[in-house]
């Protein structure tokens, strides 16, 4: 079956600015990267006459300097999974999350920009990028930069304006890398399922083993991926114990707003979100060098 009935033209911009121009000029135009989202569920009745394919717009790369890791928006999930850089960086947490992303065939095509732009609450990458405090670079009428925390408004909605496309994801390299631990975990019905709940944590400790900074993000428990700021604050300045972690996660219900779907009920999501949060914190803390 043909994938879009009313498609008339297919564009290959060579640069993101060209893509934006085409999106603005052509009526009923949509951006496409890997297309896994668009071809399966993305159209939802919208009329599309023009597709602007950004996979040849110079946005497929992974770069690192002292301060930042930069991932081009059309870098595929597989490229992230297999990039030697991500095998080590942040306890390999981005690579691990990428590896849990549906199937090889999808990972080979789906892109990080597409996944973030689709703004689904179950994204396996979003919690990791939130825990790593990533920034999202966007190109439109002007160039913008958003912290990923705050990028999502609700399910399938981001702060991006019409005609804007994601160009790059920028991850700051923690200054205290040796004392930072990261973790990713996911619960699904099967290994290849979309998450019932997923999450990631990044914790930095000081010499005394006290938490200097903590970021915890959870997916599939709200309209979109969320940071759990209250829990994070509850960890700061503390040497963690199982009890301390439990206490910090006690009021997680306030942070989340889970929904029932075919995968699990809201109630179950709420229960395991708490378990997962505690486990993520513990794992990240231990990886940072903390002892529990």
């Amino acid at each position: 079956m043909q994938y879009i009935r009313d498609l008339k033209k297919y564009y290959w911009p060579k640069a993101p600015q060209d893509a934006v121009r085409m999106l603005m000029q052509e009526p009923y135009a949509e951006v496409i990267a890997g297309g896994t989202e668009l071809l399966v569920s993305g159209l939802k009745g919208r009329e599309v006459n023009n597709l602007v394919d950004i996979t040849r717009a110079g946005l497929s790369y992974v770069k690192k300097d002292k301060k930042f890791i930069k991932i081009g928006a059309t870098t595929t999930i597989s490229e992230i999974q297999n990039a030697p850089l991500f095998k080590d960086f942040a306890n390999g947490v981005l690579s691990t999350a990428a590896q849990r992303f549906v199937s090889v065939q999808i990972r080979n095509v789906a892109t990080i920009g597409g996944n973030l732009g689709a703004a689904m609450p179950s994204s396996d990458l979003a919690p990791v990028l939130m825990a790593l405090d990533a920034k999202i670079h966007v190109c439109g009428k002007e160039i913008k930069e958003f912290a990923i925390n705050g990028f999502y408004l609700s399910k399938r909605k981001t702060v991006m304006a019409p005609y804007e496309i994601i160009t790059e994801i920028e991850i700051p390299v923690p200054a205290d890398m040796d004392r930072t631990g990261c973790a990713f975990q996911k619960i699904g019905r099967t290994e290849t399922d979309i998450a019932i709940v997923n999450g990631a944590a990044a914790i930095t400790i000081d010499d005394a083993g006290e938490v200097k900074s903590a970021r915890l993000a959870l997916g599939s428990v709200a309209q979109n991926t969320i940071r759990c700021l209250e829990i994070e604050n509850g960890l700061l300045g503390k040497k963690l114990t199982k009890k301390a972690i439990e206490a910090a996660c006690e009021n997680i219900a306030k942070a989340i707003d889970p929904k029932t779907d075919v995968r699990a009920s809201a109630k179950y999501r709420g229960t395991v979100a708490k378990v997962l949060a505690a486990r993520l914190i513990e794992e990240a803390y231990v990886k940072a060098g903390g002892k529990i």
């Binding site: 399966v40 199937s103 099967t190 290994e191 290849t192 979309i194």
Partner: peptide, 11 residues
């Protein structure tokens, strides 16, 4: 198959 899960090799 996204919502009705069969066991995969990994399961």
């Amino acid at each position: 198959f996204l919502d009705y899960k069969l066991l995969s090799t990994l399961d």
